[in-house]
Each structure stands twice: as structure tokens, then as C-alpha cells.
Simulated assay, not measured.
Amino acid sequence: MERRQLEYFLAIVHSGGFTNASRRLRVAQPSLSQAIRALERDLGTPLFHRLGRGVGLTAAGEALVRPAQQVLRDFATARASVNAVVGLVGGRLDIVALTTLAVDPLAELIGQFRERHPLVDVRVTDPEHDDAVTRMVLTGECELGLAESPVGLDGLDHLRLPEQEFFAVLPPGSQQDGQQAVDVAELAAFPLISTPEGTAMRALVDHVLTVDGKPPRVAVETPHRAAIVPLVLAGAGATLLPRRLAEDAAGRGAVVMLTEPRLVRSAVMMWRCEQLSPAATAFVDLCRQGAAPKGPVVQ
């Protein structure tokens, strides 16, 4: 049973015969008759009584009318739904991103994307582990992924986003308050707050703040990234944060400053090596434009 056959069947019902249906559909009458005969063979029963110039429905034909109408409505709904997604007037975009990257640069990019395509919903997923981003993209759990220096990009296309700067975030009242910048060796002497080993943030802290071969002291380790700024504000230690989170911490009373040397990192947007959805294509195009503004530098 094909959609075209049901469309022809209903046209005959509404037109009262094959001739009128043929004109209405702009289909040759032999082709119309052939399609209906094929439908009747498929169903194993006649659908019409042939009554000279007109037709009448058999009991089977009467039983088919409402289901046929529903099937054609469902086809129309399905086509409209697809057209909405293709035209970016509907649909959803799934992105997996590390928490810090979800704040910056992803939040700014999503804001710009939603301004352009307000009817497309966006879902941002937080991976269980930092190295899970590539896996979630490869398995199709999310269409796009955002990570720092990911490994295992076989089978994935990717785009490196503009570099972003990290800032030292110290407890309120720290003696460094008022300085333009803090040397990384001085920062490494602080008790530090970080996420556990194996996370991108911890890798940065361990790499940058290892001085003369001596690793930094992580005094407070927590998987709860949202707790890091409150811990700094409570005087539990210092940390490194990207711009947006550092600006938020500064607004809440933390001492925030540049590092010397300055610390920068770049994020990678990745997707599978296949055709993207229209929404994902538009988002990647936005990322290629480098559209996210940096905003004011925290001092």
C-alpha cells in the first residue's frame, strides 16, 4: 500500500468516479485505474462497485475511507515537521560540552544562534567525564561536542575556536588585591581548588602551576564545578577560571587578575564526518565566523 494509491482512492471517493478524479488529479485515467487495481490486489478485495459512469463504495471501501484520510494527514504532518526543521523554524540541536566551555564560549554562541533561529531548541549536555565528549558525538548521543584538546578524533570533523584566557581567582582580601597580574609561581604557592584528576581543569592547574618540578597543592578537590567560586569566596583557596566565570567571581567579591605569563587555551568543536542537520550546519557556520565577542578584560 502506497501513499499515492490512498490519495487516488480518496480522490475517486470525493469526485464520485474515475473520470472526475482523473481530471482533479491531472492523471491519465488508465494510470489511475491501474493504481486502484493494484491497491485492491494488495488488500485482497474490491473497493468500488463499478456502476456505469459512476462508482459506489464496497463495504471494504467504506472501511478504508477514514484510515486513508488519517494516513494522508500523518504524511502531511510528517512532511511539515521535516520542512520546519530543514527551514530552521523548528527542531532541536543537541550539544555536549564541558561545564566551563558551556559557560564560555558556548553560552554566547547559543545566544547568537537563538537570535537567528528562535524556533530551534538547543539542549546542552554535561559529560560524565571530560573524555566522554568525543564518545558521545561518535555514538550519536549528541550531534556536536565541545572539548579542550580532545584526543581520538578519528571519524570526526572539528573546528578549533579562538583562544580564551584564564584568570587567577583569589579569596576576598588577598594581599594581591590591586595588582595588575600575579606570577604563576606566586599563584602556585596558594592552596588551590580544582576538579578531580582526569578533568580538563585539573590538567590545566597541574600543568601550569607545576614550578621547578614541584606540583601544586590542591587543597580542595571537588567534582562540583558550581561549588568552586563559593569555595574561593569562603577563603578555602585560589583557582584558575575562564573569563566569564572569573567575571562572575569578581562581581561576587573575589580578587581576580591576569596571570604572568598569560594563560590561554582553545576549545574544539567536533561532529561526525557525515551530513549534519540544518541546525547543526548553521551552528558550525556561526562558529566558523568567530562570532563570540570577548567582552571587557577583568582586572
Rank of each mutant, 00 (worst) to 15 (best):
3 R>E: 14
3 R>A: 10
4 R>P: 00
6 L>G: 04
7 E>I: 00
8 Y>P: 00
10 L>H: 05
10 L>C: 06
10 L>S: 06
11 A>P: 02
13 V>L: 09
13 V>F: 11
15 S>H: 14
19 T>N: 13
21 A>H: 07
22 S>W: 04
23 R>D: 05
29 Q>L: 03
33 S>F: 04
34 Q>S: 09
34 Q>F: 09
38 A>M: 10
38 A>F: 02
44 G>L: 09
46 P>Q: 06
47 L>M: 10
49 H>R: 14
53 R>S: 12
56 G>H: 13
64 L>K: 07
66 R>K: 13
67 P>V: 09
69 Q>A: 14
71 V>Y: 05
75 F>L: 10
77 T>I: 14
80 A>C: 01
80 A>D: 15
84 A>W: 08
85 V>T: 14
85 V>A: 15
91 G>N: 04
92 R>I: 09
94 D>R: 15
95 I>K: 09
96 V>S: 12
97 A>W: 01
98 L>E: 13
100 T>G: 01
101 L>Q: 06
104 D>G: 15
104 D>S: 15
106 L>K: 07
106 L>P: 06
108 E>P: 08
113 F>S: 12
114 R>W: 08
117 H>K: 14
117 H>Y: 15
119 L>I: 08
123 R>E: 15
130 D>C: 04
135 R>A: 12
137 V>E: 04
141 E>I: 06
143 E>Q: 15
143 E>W: 13
148 E>M: 14
153 L>E: 04
157 D>I: 01
158 H>Y: 11
159 L>T: 01
164 Q>L: 14
165 E>T: 11
165 E>V: 11
165 E>S: 10
166 F>Q: 03
172 P>D: 03
176 Q>H: 12
182 V>I: 13
185 A>D: 15
185 A>Q: 15
186 E>K: 05
186 E>W: 03
192 L>W: 07
193 I>V: 14
195 T>R: 13
196 P>W: 07
197 E>S: 08
202 R>F: 08
206 D>I: 01
207 H>R: 12
214 K>S: 13
215 P>A: 12
218 V>D: 06
219 A>E: 15
221 E>C: 13
222 T>K: 07
231 L>K: 03
231 L>M: 10
233 L>I: 00
235 G>M: 02
239 T>M: 00
248 D>P: 00
248 D>M: 10
249 A>S: 01
249 A>N: 00
250 A>M: 09
250 A>I: 05
251 G>I: 05
252 R>P: 01
254 A>S: 02
264 V>I: 03
264 V>M: 10
265 R>Q: 14
268 V>I: 02
269 M>G: 11
272 R>C: 06
273 C>W: 02
279 A>T: 07
281 T>L: 11
285 D>G: 14
285 D>V: 08
289 Q>N: 07
294 K>I: 12
294 K>A: 15
295 G>T: 05
295 G>N: 04
296 P>C: 13
296 P>N: 12
297 V>Y: 06
297 V>F: 09
299 Q>F: 05
